[in-house]
């Protein structure tokens, strides 16, 4: 499980770990294409979706996230989340049934690097809404 890391000892006596070679990452263009496919002919508008994520992330291995939609439950067809800086950008898709108490989901996600995360909600009337969070993933100092 141990990955090889390169460590540099700076003059101040601090250890600065350098990240390993970056794995392949998705790009904003790829994510835009995925979202375009999801949205189809509808216009993607801000508002009505709330994506809660910390803007400063202590460890990208597990980042608490909540997505909620300001709409009646029956009107929400799906929620999708995309992380454009991850190797595989699609994070989650949720659909709600009649017994859901609110169009809301909370989970924990992986973020490979600092990036923009986008949540898209598709409503039954065909309208599509989104929220985006730009966040900074700080590198843990002492890594396994």
């Amino acid at each position: 499980m141990m990955r090889r890391r390169f460590l540099v000892l700076t003059g101040s006596g601090l250890i600065v770990p350098l990240a390993p070679m970056h794995p392949a990452r998705a790009t904003p263009v790829q994510v835009a294409a995925l979202i375009a496919e999801l949205v189809g002919d509808a216009t993607l508008r801000d508002e009505r979706v709330k994506l809660d994520l910390p803007v400063m992330v202590e460890n990208g291995n597990s980042v608490g996230m909540t997505v909620s939609v300001d709409a009646a439950l029956g009107d929400v067809r799906s929620i999708d989340v995309f992380a454009e800086g991850n190797p595989l950008p699609h994070v989650l898709r949720v659909r709600f049934g009649p017994r859901a108490g609110a169009p809301r989901i909370a989970t924990r996600i992986r973020l490979a690097t600092s990036q923009t995360v986008t949540a898209v909600a598709k409503l039954a009337d065909g309208s599509c809404w989104r929220d985006r969070v730009d966040l900074l993933v700080t590198l843990a100092a002492c890594i396994d």
């Binding site: 601090l14 460890n59 291995n61 700080t138 843990a140 100092a141 002492c142 396994d144």
Partner: peptide, 24 residues
């Protein structure tokens, strides 16, 4: 003080075994 982005803790063993995000 800080080591890269993280605060250097005093290193007290008061929560072990612990769930570490780094270890997943």
């Amino acid at each position: 003080q800080r080591l890269a982005g993280s605060v250097i803790p005093q290193g007290h063993p008061n929560g072990y075994p612990e769930y570490r995000l780094e270890w997943q």
